[in-house]
Design a protein around this nucleic acid. Structure first.
Lengths: 231, 231
DNA sequence: CCAAAAGTGTTTCTATTACACCCATGT
DNA sequence: ACATGGGTGTAATAGAAACACTTTTGG
């Protein structure tokens, strides 16, 4: 810090990140929350968060926080919003940057999650949260809703193989409205983004539904084109 | 700071804001830049920015920075993105939040602007800037482009009375494409957002173009509806 | 055989695009 | 009288929305 005395009159501030971790269990869109094991507000529900260290970028900090809770690295995260009100953290002046992460709900480290006493909550049944974490979640849902409309689909939330009814259900949850089955299939199949497999999944019906997987190359192309994916 | 020793092991960080100030001179979309009067990078072009004080929210900090340069308060500002790479500021670890502001280009405090040696630059003729300010501007333009599509129009950039050709030109600039005159008029008039006045502006043609003003109530309604305004 | 979910086409309607001529006026 | 920018309507196309029946199969 040879020349940091240039900034000697500046107030340094604590900078944190908070992660809205979304998962989809086939039925509902959920958020992973932890029971806070430390002060302030120990014992209350909150987002997983952490302070940014001097030696990591803010984005890397967010990734570290996600890794610490879920054991997952290399996950798609999106920076959302800065929460910078003066008294949002009663302990000290802390500014927090929110991020969302989309993960496969079956694919995380259970031991870590248990250690943090974390639990999945359906997005319309979120408990009271500390600080402004409730608002962070609302904004994240709003943002996900927008994103999913213009970027093709967030396949991160689904297992490798999935059925059309599952995919539709996911879209219905995120966008908060029921899509027409026929229009939905038509539109999504027309993108060429899905590859039909020769297997069926019979967990949710007698007839069974065909499994599909994503064509990642095609997905990337569409994403880059900023394709309006579904209304 | 009674209990801030809870955070005693946390690295505090310098937190700044940088403002992308947009203006429209009737012809081009422009950005207001200052010639830096202080270290580091003294004498180079940069965005107007400043550090967040302990006693102000981040949003308020952005407003203060805008006020200091333009003398304008109560201006629409939108928080954009956090720039948090480790070495973005060579002096010390500084994280910056970018904001854009939309102002009427004829309506600012000239004395302040001269003091800062500030100048307007057309958005496709931006000079080399310090740090990551170039990227901040690109992201801001991108964001403005999106915003203008879904929120009706940014009347903040125009004088109270304006003509349809002026408005079209503004949209052409922001969206980087030439709109069809007829389709543009049709669409924008159909929103009911414009009120035709009984005056003409003859500055740019012999015939003169009718002046309009915005119907703010209608504007607000459309904005709240998230209306897709123009493509 | 029946309950429950999967799968599949057509029509209507609405929104977007493309396109060209006359008007008003200052010089 | 002419050059310059302002103002206006219609037809073609594409995309979104509405809508209902048949298929499969485990029980």
């Amino acid at each position: 810090m040879s020349s940091s005395n240039l900034y000697k009159d500046i107030d340094p501030i604590y900078l944190a990140v908070d992660c809205i971790i979304f998962g989809f269990d086939g039925n509902d869109l959920k958020v992973l929350l932890i029971k806070r094991g430390f002060k302030p507000e120990k014992g209350k529900w909150s987002l997983m968060g952490g302070f940014i260290n001097k030696n990591e970028s803010v984005d890397d900090g967010a990734k570290r926080v996600l890794l610490n809770l879920t054991g997952l690295g290399d996950i798609f995260m999106k920076q959302l919003h800065v929460f910078g009100e003066i008294n949002r953290d009663p302990v000290a002046r802390t500014v927090s940057v929110s991020y969302y992460a989309l993960i496969n709900i079956h694919d995380y480290d259970n031991k870590l999650v248990r250690e943090h006493e974390a639990r999945w909550f359906t997005i319309n049944k979120i408990p009271d949260l500390i600080f402004d974490h409730g608002e962070m979640i609302s904004k994240a849902i709003e943002s996900l809703k927008k994103d999913v409309k213009y970027s093709p689909v967030r396949f991160e939330l689904l297992p490798k193989k999935f059925t059309l009814p599952q995919l539709k259900r996911l879209y219905d949850c995120i966008m908060g409205k029921e899509h027409d089955v026929r229009n939905f299939s038509k539109k999504i199949l027309s993108t060429g983004m899905l590859i039909k497999l020769n297997e069926k999944d019979s967990n949710s019906s007698k007839k069974g539904a065909f499994l599909y997987r994503f064509d990642k190359k095609r997905y990337k192309t569409l994403k880059d084109e900023g394709f309006l994916f579904i209304s």
